[in-house]
């Protein structure tokens, strides 16, 4: 069990963030940044968390009901189309791309101001991709068999997946994107884990931070490898933004439905996704 810091008594309840005034010392900034992790969460935070958790449980209950009853509960009345679920999927993929754009592309373009928001941008990417991955899963008729979309050896003689299906490539694309984004996010956090490790008193918390920081010692060598890796990952993530959304758009564009069947979809979707608002209501 994680024990909170001994300093975390009532007097050390999380104070509202202090805007940096003047030219504070680096140690002060580190203190300020790390303070939420040292302290117990405040009432406001608890209230927000409770509200979010309540909303989440409503969502979870709905999804549970849907999985237990059948996806007819979506209420879809244009049965041949996808509906809110896939629209939402596209929406979340778009949100995720906005995060990658901030963190990766701005890194490649050496925009210094990105550092102030890149952690939250990357986290947004991760959670957006998780949300995005959730929707294709729960829009399936039999989500408990979703693992069938992965090619794995089986006793069916062997029965593989359909490599012609855009949906399959969608799965691959989302998975790749998720992996790269996770790695990118995690690599960026290593020095910070090290800072937390150094601040943490001995105990479980320290052990966890020690493992998470992968032996970071702040030397030039680690910093230089860190920079290189970050650049490489940014370079990998940027084309993925293009490929993922192209593939997502192909889910629609390869169908022969009037209105969907158009080659403009991949290029058309990318700029729109980059604004993170790339959602059109598709019935």
């Amino acid at each position: 069990m994680i024990r909170f810091d001994h300093r975390a008594d009532r007097s050390l309840r999380l104070q509202p963030p202090r805007p940096p005034v003047g030219n504070p010392a680096l140690g002060r900034i580190t203190d300020d940044v790390a303070r939420p992790l040292d302290a117990r969460p405040g009432l406001g935070w608890c209230a927000c968390f409770a509200a979010a958790a309540a909303a989440l449980s409503i969502g979870a209950a709905c999804v549970g009901y849907e999985i237990a009853t059948g996806i007819g509960t979506w209420g879809l009345n244009r049965t041949v189309g996808w509906a809110f679920d896939i629209t939402n999927f596209v929406f979340w993929v778009g949100i995720g791309h906005a995060g990658t754009l901030i963190s990766a592309i701005l890194l490649l373009l050496r925009q210094q101001w990105r550092t102030s928001i890149n952690r939250s941008a990357e986290a947004m990417t991760i959670f957006a991709v998780i949300c995005a991955a959730l929707f294709p899963l729960i829009h399936m008729g039999r989500p408990w068999l979703a693992f069938w979309v992965f090619p794995y050896p089986n006793s069916r003689g062997s029965l593989w997946v359909n490599f012609r299906s855009p949906l399959l490539w969608d799965v691959f694309a989302i998975n790749t994107y998720m992996t790269i984004s996770l790695a990118f996010w995690y690599i960026g956090m290593i020095p910070d884990f090290a800072t937390l490790r150094d601040r943490a008193p001995a105990g479980l918390k320290k052990t966890i931070y020690s493992i998470a920081s992968l032996g970071w010692n702040g030397s030039h060598r680690t910093w230089s490898r860190y920079e290189t890796l970050n650049i490489i990952l940014a370079g990998l993530a940027t084309p993925l933004v293009i490929s993922v959304h192209s593939i997502v758009s192909m889910d629609f564009a390869t169908s022969i439905l009037p209105g969907w069947h158009t080659t403009i979809f991949p290029p058309y979707w990318r700029p729109t996704s980059r604004t993170a608002t790339s959602t059109r209501w598709r019935r």
């Binding site: 049965t79 399936m140 979703a146 979309v149 299906s165 949906l167 169908s255």
Partner: peptide, 10 residues
């Protein structure tokens, strides 16, 4: 069938 409904769509 896992029910992606892509076929019905297409």
């Amino acid at each position: 069938c896992v029910g992606t409904r892509y076929c019905e769509n297409n």
